[in-house]
Design a protein around this nucleic acid. Structure first.
Lengths: 192, 192, 192, 192
DNA sequence: AATGAATGAGCGTTCATTCAT
DNA sequence: TATGAATGAACGCTCATTCAT
């Protein structure tokens, strides 16, 4: 029980430690006792850093979205042509497969456990949603926001499939297939 | 004998009545009291027909898969060419949009609340998974099981997106887009 | 664990059983576990009959006020002259000393743990307050509501004193003294 | 030596600052965090000056009793006849109405949260009780200790009534009425 | 077959108190 | 002295499940 000096720093550490637990069991199936045990602190300490389990989860979701943006932004930097961009996205997803699967699970869980009105009115989540749209537009050099969002939707579909099959189906294969579909679609619809 | 039939019939009625509740609130957020109230029976009666809440949910999932197969089979009957088949799938999904969204939510919820090992070892769910694979193969006239499964995965991605945006994004548009992508992919890869 | 048939009846029994506990320890110092143990039921059963600890306490307060009115009404019946009325009040208080002391403690506790606005706006408690006023007016044949209320106030002072001294000071003596004061006051101010 | 004096002085300052908080919310409803925030110190500092919340409360009660004695003693100084004494008591109570109401609340709270045996065996509180008795005897020139104590009891009844009605009933009126009763009683029983 | 009262482990949360700094 | 992060027992309450009727 060393005394924590950088409180903000420690809060983020706690968040990153609870990522796996929430991803594996889901919000409703993780108890605060499990959380505190896993994080190596008392339940009281948890409430010192987060005003409730719900708030903790929300802050985790926020944290994740920032990390996603960071990862995908980095992936986009070197790619120039559409083919290169698609390859870069594919590589980033495959490289960070475990992370992205967990992330997708947590988002799904979040939407499932939050009142819709609350989600839609929450400025943080509006912004997060827009960030995903934006990053997909930038990454693939698209001008159509809906298309960008749609591609992210399909990726999420593949990520969530991993959960239900525990990776029996090859993630790499599926992402490659998805990217081939995208390529076919772009080829067909950009030349017309 | 007639009593058993009635009882079985009644069990199925109860299941279909709890579909909406589970889809809207999620497994963990529905209490047995809510269920019994909604179904118009006592909690005791619920336990007469289902040995636990979990079993009830599992039987619902099974029931859903059978209904899915029925709906998609019907859709496939008249279609002959690949284009017609894709159109039929699109029409079926759009026509039963609400149902399929709820169904996808329930499946996701199910996987999130069940230990993986349990899912993978459960013969019922193995079979259900295979049924989805089979129906997509039949419907689209595919010989590649993985591809069939993959398409179902993408459809699920679009269905779940509806939940998080509450239909702000047009489901019809997205399904159409997905079908266009499939068409482009098939065109490109069947001629090679 | 016999199954309770007359639910309403049983609820009242539970209330009367928790009277002593609340009076001896005070609302905040009685836990629901203590209550359930003392009442011989599970904590769950408590919540079957009362929606919260607070509601339980409020219903107890209501129940008490009704009982008070009953006791004091009975006391008033036979008395005719002012002297007789005062004697009847004195007798009733002394006879039911333990009950009235506990009742006073619970009221005090209630006011101490409830937001004032809530008390003042609560129709039940308004009514209860008026009942005490009314019963004192009837009992002593007064037309002055404020005087009636004031006398009840003084009686409560004596009742609460018993708590802090645990009856070292004779309750009987003090009530007699209070009644003498009342008599002296009435004699002086009715002849003028 | 000067440090000790400062420390002692500071302790008393802290006590006087927490008077309002305890009076308004009650012992059980004030947390040590609230206390430390209100007093402008850390929770650690609180425990430097007081070994526990309970001890803090007890010392406050003691402090109050000393202040009461001081106020009532001052009131008694100039009064000579019984009529003057009663008027002086009345004036003192009315003038310091807010203080005396809070004080009565805290005493009541104290008795409600302390085991009786503990109160009765605690030399400090024995002494405090006697001080009240003494001051009432001195103030009213009484030789009967029980009568003195009884009058203080009635005054407390009126003070506590203020809490439950939030001053809707005039405190001044009620104290005047009480003093009239006392006068009537003294007149009747001193001439016999 | 059906009821709903009863159970009690376990939940999220609080808070008096401690102690490393 | 003084701080406030950390503790963990205990709180009010929930709810899947059982069982007397």
């Amino acid at each position: 029980m060393p005394k924590i000096i950088d409180s903000e720093q420690y809060r983020k550490e706690l968040l990153s430690k609870c990522f796996d637990l929430f991803a594996e069991k889901g919000y409703a199936n993780v108890t605060t006792r499990q959380l505190s045990k896993e994080l190596g602190v008392s339940t009281g300490a948890l409430y010192h850093y987060f005003s409730s389990k719900k708030v903790m989860f929300e802050q985790l979701v926020e944290e994740i979205s920032q990390q996603d943006v960071r990862m995908l932004s980095d992936a986009a930097k070197k790619a120039k042509t559409l083919t290169e961009r698609i390859a870069a996205l594919e590589a980033c997803l495959i490289e960070n497969q475990d992370y992205f699967v967990k992330q997708a699970v947590i988002w799904t869980d979040f939407y499932q456990h939050t009142e819709l009105e609350e989600v839609l009115n929450n400025p943080v989540f509006k912004q997060v949603d827009e960030r995903y749209e934006q990053i997909m537009m930038t990454l693939l050099g698209l001008s159509d926001a809906k298309l960008a969002r749609f591609i992210w939707t399909l990726i999420n579909g593949v990520l969530l499939e991993q959960v239900s099959t525990d990776g029996i189906l090859s993630f790499t294969e599926q992402i490659e297939l998805l990217m081939k579909m995208l390529t076919a679609y772009f080829e067909k619809h950009s030349t017309q």
